[in-house]
């Protein structure tokens, strides 16, 4: 089967500024594919090349088996797009906006559009100028889905959506997959991608770090735990503890070399061993949070990214000097 999206050594530079570098990406058809990376990684740049909004410096990209430059019109006919930076015509109402875009497409079913408005709880009677960011996002989603395209390209679709609408959005994505549509969505939060995607690609500083099945990722879930102790504890105490991939001394006294009253542990997979080790000390508070993507990258692919320092599993690190002071 032809790939829904295929890029080969795709490079885009903005003058001296890096956009993406030699990106090789293959998105199989009929899947929900997450394109993950921190801000500035090159996600929007890649997407805009796919839609022929910007032109690659070198390399090649095809969508649905069609060349992104030559066959762009055919591609755009079969694609729905939600831009990351979304603007509509402020003087048009939601209805008018959707009618205009439906006319530009042709073949949009009115009933389905109304259906989408209802499901996302979107009031199409209001003028765009009076819509909140979240409501504009809904309008963006509706216009992307309304013609049931073969491929949906959604740039950070859930940013600015409230949780209830996010939930409905996930439903829409699953339905699209069941209907055989391909969904390519970018995100900078891992849990969201894990929730809806079958596969994820990690991109960082313009290059692809890894492509993974989400199932395979689950067993290696990364958590970050910040623990405050009654007395300073040396970071080294957690070296070699199963699952702990990094320890950072985070307390005020960290620079004095006698350990720290606050440690930040990055744990991969089961928390069991780390918790049992923690129990040997007097713990005052403990908070756990989803780590940001950069930390996930370091934990999962630190070796692959050729990163020096606290990237290797079990490494001990200190916060930047500025942070410690």
């Amino acid at each position: 089967m032809t790939a829904a999206i295929l890029t080969q050594r795709l490079t885009k530079s903005y003058g001296k500024q890096r956009g993406i570098v030699d990106l090789d990406l293959e998105v199989p058809p009929g899947r929900v594919f997450g394109f993950l990376g921190p801000n500035g990684a090159g996600k929007s740049t890649t997407i805009r090349v796919l839609l022929d909004l910007i032109r690659p410096t070198t390399g090649h990209a095809s969508v649905l088996g069609l060349d992104c430059r030559r066959d762009s019109l055919a591609i755009r006919r079969r694609t729905g797009y939600l831009p990351g930076e979304l603007s509509f015509y402020p003087r048009l109402s939601g209805h008018e906006t959707l009618r205009y875009f439906a006319n530009l497409r042709g073949g949009v079913q009115r009933g389905y559009v109304d259906d989408l408005c209802r499901r996302l709880d979107f009031d199409a009677g209001r003028r765009v100028a009076d819509l909140s960011t979240g409501n504009k996002r809904k309008l963006g989603l509706i216009q992307a889905f309304m013609h049931r395209p073969d491929l949906l390209i959604l740039d950070e679709p859930t940013s600015g959506l409230d949780p209830l609408v996010q939930h409905e959005f996930y439903h829409l994505v699953r339905e699209a997959r069941e209907a055989g549509q391909t969904v390519f969505l970018s995100s900078h939060v891992l849990p969201e991608a894990q929730r809806v995607c079958d596969m994820v690609a990690f991109v960082r500083e313009g290059t692809l770090v890894a492509i993974e099945d989400v199932g395979a990722l689950a067993g290696r879930a990364i958590r970050e735990i910040e623990v405050t102790f009654a007395a300073p504890v040396p970071a080294a105490a957690f070296l070699g503890v199963s699952g702990v991939t990094a320890v950072v001394e985070n307390g005020a006294e960290a620079s004095r070399g006698a350990g720290s009253s606050t440690l930040r542990l990055t744990v991969s997979g089961s928390l069991d061993a780390a918790v049992k080790k923690l129990a040997q000390f007097e713990v005052v508070t403990m908070t756990s949070r989803e780590p940001d993507l950069e930390d996930v990258f370091l934990a999962l692919y630190g070796d692959r990214m050729g990163h020096a320092g606290p990237a290797a599993p079990g490494a001990v690190g200190k916060e930047d000097a500025g942070h410690v002071a």
Binding site: R48, L51, D52, L53, L73, R76, R77, T79, Y81, P83, E85, L86, S87, F88, Y89, F101, L104, R105, Q143
Partner: peptide, 14 residues
């Protein structure tokens, strides 16, 4: 400048 061109040109309009 208004930012609507990106969406417009993602439609099948040359």
């Amino acid at each position: 400048e208004d930012g609507t061109l990106s969406l417009l040109l993602a439609y099948p309009v040359s």
